[in-house]
Computed example of a mutant assay.
Amino acid sequence: MPEMPKKTTRAMRTQRARRLFLAIASGAALYAAMPAFAGEAFPVRPITLVLPFPPGGASDTQLRALAIAAAKDLGQPIVVVNRPGNGGTIAPAAMAHSAAPDGYTIALAVRTLLRLPHLSKVNFDPLKDFTYIIGLSGFSFGVVVANDAPWKSLKELIDDARARPGAITYGASGRGSSGHIAMERLARAAGVRLNFIPYKGTAEEVKDLLGGHLAAYADPGWGSMLESGKVRVLATMGEVRLKRWPQVPTLKELGYDIVVTSPIGLIGPRGMDPSVVARLHDAFRRAMVDPAYIRTMEQNDQVQEYLGSDAYTKSAAREFAREKAVVHELGITLE
């Protein structure tokens, strides 16, 4: 009997996107069937916040704490739904195509959303298909290895990679993610070749790293593990050293002109009512000072990077153009 052909990565990705599209569309249809009450102020029913990463990662704990605080202000529950895939882009794209622009379905937006259209064909336009509600914070990226790894410094890792081209594996949350691009820039600058393995989120990366199946990863959310001695951070990727970890040098200090800023925020489908956008913005803005939320920020070495709706929209346009320049400089695609 002939062997059945295996599904291609593109086919599986399309199938995942279609399933997600149908799931969100079904939820939107259900809510649309609920009776509307004229004159009642938004919101009058629960809000769905789509988180495009698996449970357990840095963004998961952060956004759940923020959602709890914002829900108190809004007077309605905020249901956080994890929908990982393709570096955090499949879920927002599905939301843009299927959810009503009524404010009851919103999503977390990550930098990859502005970068991926320059790397491959996508079914969304980040500047036309979304309403930018509020900018929240920025991730602190690092080059992370297990505490029992043989490399005590970034130089030792690079020297080993030079001696063994392609032998050292590293992970990041999806192809085209900020961690992936940063490590490819580092490899090019150092003249070495690393072996990239894409993951859905940091929880999976950490499991493989600590299990000895992955040499390093480049993502945020490593603070608690560094504190407990489970990992070693060879370099951070910000402009300056982190206050909590002043002993860890930056890539820039080590001679690599690489600074990674990966802001996150909340978006909805295009065409949202400005009054609904303002209500959501104000609730989440007030939630950003909630003590439980601030604790999750500190644990993950994240910094507040608040942007109002107008400023967030303009920032997205600037960063979209900047990502295009970076991608063209690297000369990489994901096709």
Rank of each mutant, 00 (worst) to 15 (best):
T9D: 04
R10T: 10
F21G: 04
A28H: 03
A32D: 13
A36K: 13
G39H: 06
G39V: 07
V44C: 06
V44L: 07
V44N: 08
R45V: 03
P46S: 08
G56V: 12
Q62H: 06
Q62V: 14
A69S: 11
A70T: 04
L74Q: 00
G75C: 02
P77W: 12
P77R: 10
I78G: 07
P84W: 12
N86I: 01
G88W: 02
T89P: 00
A91D: 10
P92S: 09
A93Q: 11
A94V: 05
A96W: 00
S98K: 04
A99Q: 03
P101Q: 13
G103I: 09
T105R: 12
L108T: 11
L108P: 03
V110A: 11
L113M: 14
R115N: 08
P117V: 02
K121I: 10
K121M: 08
V122M: 09
V122T: 15
K128H: 13
F130K: 06
I134N: 01
G135Y: 00
G138R: 12
V145C: 11
A146M: 03
N147R: 14
D148S: 10
D148K: 12
A149H: 12
L154E: 04
D160A: 15
G171Y: 07
H180D: 13
H180Y: 12
I181C: 05
M183W: 00
M183G: 07
A187R: 09
A190K: 02
Y199V: 04
Y199L: 03
T202G: 15
G212E: 05
H213T: 04
L214C: 07
D219V: 10
W222L: 02
E227P: 00
R232D: 01
R241P: 02
K243M: 09
R244Y: 03
D257S: 10
D257K: 13
I267N: 06
I267V: 15
M272A: 01
D273Y: 12
V276T: 15
A283M: 08
F284A: 01
R285K: 14
M288L: 08
M288F: 02
V289I: 15
R295F: 04
R295S: 09
Q299F: 02
D301W: 10
V303E: 07
G308I: 11
G308C: 07
K314E: 15
S315W: 15
A316Y: 01
E319W: 11
F320I: 05
E323R: 04
K324Q: 15
H328A: 15
